[in-house]
Each structure stands twice: as structure tokens, then as C-alpha cells.
Design a protein around this nucleic acid. Sequence first.
DNA 1: TTTATATATCAAAATAGTTTGATATGCATG
DNA 2: CATGCATATCAAACTATTTTGATATATAAA
Lengths: 136, 136
Amino acid sequence: MACVTKEAIGRMTRLIGDADKAQCKVNKLRSITAKLNEKDIDAEAEIFKAMADPYRLKILMLLREGELCVCEIMIAIDRPQSTTSYQLSILRDAGLIRERKDGRWSRYRLSEGAVIEMLNLVKLMKDNQNGGGDSG
Amino acid sequence: MACVTKEAIGRMTRLIGDADKAQCKVNKLRSITAKLNEKDIDAEAEIFKAMADPYRLKILMLLREGELCVCEIMIAIDRPQSTTSYQLSILRDAGLIRERKDGRWSRYRLSEGAVIEMLNLVKLMKDNQNGGGDSG
DNA sequence: TTTATATATCAAAATAGTTTGATATGCATG
DNA sequence: CATGCATATCAAACTATTTTGATATATAAA
């Protein structure tokens, strides 16, 4: 951390043109990131990681329609049981879905409305990138 | 795909208790996922992947404050230049940030407001999970 | 209580993503 | 055009995630 500071100030001085202001800017940048709580950021990254897979996105989209058990989900995404279980465990551990035991079945559902908002938002972003195309 | 269908209908029949209805349900589940466009889902997963890393989240949070060049970002996140460049390329390729060349500097900024909405939404989700804690 | 079923977990192979020093590229200046 | 600097790209080591058959666990039915 400390070992790059000198070079950092040099770079910043060339960028800004004034050594004192550069020192100031370096301090400011460092203080902004210092304020960002590591644990919070890791927790947020964990949520994005859980959504960062096509099968898992499919599962979330399916669960918008209502609660489903593992055997239904494995049919829908067309993967083996162990794979389906694995993907569900990632979503569950990230807090995106909830499990309910029902006899020998495990039924899964979305844990909160924000998951749907997230899916809507990412669709919007994708559509904006492609120039406003439409899709299911 | 076809080779699991028979077993799928068996499972579904046990779940529902009626072979015809089971066949129907299997078809319905398959048709829901069939409607989900693979390319769209992959594109959306790509966006989530880009956000699924603590350093990249930090960068996005920094860029909420305005445009920054690579040398400023590497100071803020305290990583070597090559690492910083790599992370920026992931964000750029996913369409989350935009690059602007300015002499020998490359300046980066958020590409759209939806990125900020995404950051707000994930913070909400994380806070809900922890029982409403607060953070920077 | 034996058997079948649904799901979770394990373990090992396969695949994918990250880090970073070294090097290339491109701009600006002397 | 030689030099210095900012950034991008490369390549190899490293780390993490995913896949899936096999196996364990738990529930229900025979």
C-alpha cells in the first residue's frame, strides 16, 4: 500500500500539474475507497456472482412464475439432478431464493421482490446496449 | 434433451398424481425455458459477471463520483496498473463503463444511470439480508 | 423393515477467471 | 526521431467455479 504512494503522487502531479494538489487528490481517492466497507462490498459481489450464470438466471426467471421443486427445475433447465441442486445451493446461499421442505420434495421460491427488480433492470441494460430490441 | 423426458414424466406423475397432467406440466416447463432466449440470458449473465467482483464494484462506486483516468483508479483500488487495466476492460466489455481517450490518458465513466440503480438495488438486498444495517 | 424416491453432498476432472511482471503501443515533448 | 509516460496486451502461474457420476440422507410407501 505505502510503497506505491510516491509513484502515485508523481503520476498525479503530472496529471494535475501541482504537487500539493496531487497529494490532496491521492488522499481523497484513498479516503473514498477506505470508506467503502470491505465486508459490504464482498456481500454485494456475492449476490452478483449468484446471478452471473445463465442456468441460475433461468432458474430465477422460472421462479417468477411461482414455487417449484427441484425435479421441476431440472426438467426446465435440462440438467442432471446434481447440477441442478448445486445451482440452487448457490442461489440459496446468496439469499436469492428460499427453500421449503415438503415431504421428500424441496420447493424453492424467490426470497424477495428485489430479485425481480434486478432481472428487470438487467434486461433494460441489455436492451439499451443492443439499441432497444425486444425479447421474452 | 429427449433422453430425460421419460424419467421426467415419471417424476412429474408422482408429484402430480396424473400421467396426462404430468405430461402437460413437463411440456409447459420446457416451453417456458424454450421461450427464454439463450443469447439474451447470456448477455444478461455477462453484465452480472462484470459486477461480480469486489474490485470492479469499487471501481463502479468510485465512478459514481465522476470520470477518472486509469492512474487515479489504480491508486484508489491499490492494485498494479495491469490488474487495473484488466478489470476496466471487463467492465467496458460488459458495457457498464465508457472510455474516452484524452492525450495519453484514458478516462472512464459510468455508461448509464442503470448502473447506479443496480448498485442501489444490491445494497438494498444485502441490507435486507442482514436485518437492515447501514453502511457507506 | 425393505424398497423406492427426492434431494443433498462428495470428489475428481474440466473449465473459467484473476493476477501481475514483462512487453508493446501510442501520444507528447525535447 | 529519441525519450518518457499512460495504458493496453501478453503469457504463465495461480485460484475459483462448474459439472456430474457416485454415494449418502431422508421421507414415504409397500
